[in-house]
Design a protein around this nucleic acid. Structure first.
Length: 277
DNA sequence: CTCAGTGTTCAGTG
DNA sequence: TCACTGAACACTGA
């Protein structure tokens, strides 16, 4: 998915549909990959009858706080999202848009509540994971995450110090979840675009002023995307986002600067050489 | 048929 | 051990 903005959208879905509700029916689709070998029976036993207290997010990870443990964790990998029977929900890379079909294609788990609400997680490419943890913040994988730009806006001088200790390219560093949690491929490019930094720059070559621009961009880009409900149509028109998905036709920004496309740190990368140094 | 792809992990290297 | 790179994973849709 699903990067920080889309995952936060998912958290709000969980909150709106499930918080305060008792889970009366849990249907699990047998998938040893998505469930990491945890048996369907164990997942059902953990959730059925429990009441949802809260929906939390850190980086690209989501979890539900229940009135008993363990708690379920959700990670989407590169595809999927949550869906409800009314056909709403944000689905990424799952092919056809949600339709009347329920549960939808690629459903991995369906949760139903005592008051008749329902929510389902889909995951077409099976790179996502559903896990059970007793204390998510203190256990892998969430315990290994770096700062979340929304939950813990980085202090510019702290960020500068951490950049000094890194020799790799900014692009690769931003994608490292132990460095900054929730930054994915398009967010990384958008942040570097906003901070006017070349994605190939080595982290330890940045000056304090550049580190400050990076810190500011990390919070402002993620905040704006979340405020727009991860709806690309509501993202500011000058964002690189609008051009990066169609390189063939969008080789320049609205301002007329050319956009460069290259694979960096193994990911498709877009930037504007005239602006990003 | 081939290939890219909004993520993560692991093996290999320095 | 750490930091970094690139391949692998699994699957859909163009």
């Amino acid at each position: 998915m699903p990067e920080l903005p889309e995952v936060e959208f998912g958290r709000r879905q969980l909150e709106a549909v499930l918080v305060g509700e008792r889970l009366t029916s849990v249907a699990v689709f047998d998938d040893p990959i998505v469930f990491e070998g945890v048996s369907p029976a164990r997942v059902v036993a953990a959730l059925e009858g429990a009441t949802v207290r809260a929906a939390r997010r850190r980086g690209k990870h989501l979890w539900l706080e229940l009135d008993r443990r363990p708690w379920p964790l959700f990670h989407f990998g590169m595809t999927g999202g949550f869906a409800t029977p009314d056909g709403s929900g944000l689905q990424l890379h799952t092919g056809p848009a949600l339709d009347a079909q329920w549960p939808p294609r690629f459903a991995k788990i369906v949760l139903e509540t005592a008051r008749g609400r329902a929510l389902c997680m889909t995951n077409a490419r099976r790179l996502g994971r559903i896990r059970l943890r007793r204390d998510p913040l203190c256990e892998s994988p969430i315990a290994d995450l770096g700062f979340d730009p929304l939950l813990e806006p980085p202090d510019p001088s702290d960020l500068y110090a951490r950049l000094q200790a890194r020799r790799g390219m900014l692009k690769g560093l931003l994608l490292d979840q132990r460095f900054a949690a929730g930054v994915g491929n398009w967010v990384a490019d958008e942040v570097l675009h906003a901070a006017r930094l070349d994605p190939r720059r080595k982290a330890n070559t940045l000056g304090p002023a550049e580190a400050e621009r990076l810190a500011e961009a990390l919070t402002s880009i993620t905040k704006k995307a979340v405020d727009a409900d991860a709806d690309a149509d509501r993202y500011p028109g000058h964002w690189l986002f609008h051009q990066r998905w169609a390189p063939a036709e969008g080789l320049t920004t609205p301002a007329g600067d050319s956009i460069e496309f290259l694979t960096l740190s193994g990911r498709a990368t877009a930037w504007v050489p005239a602006l990003q140094k």
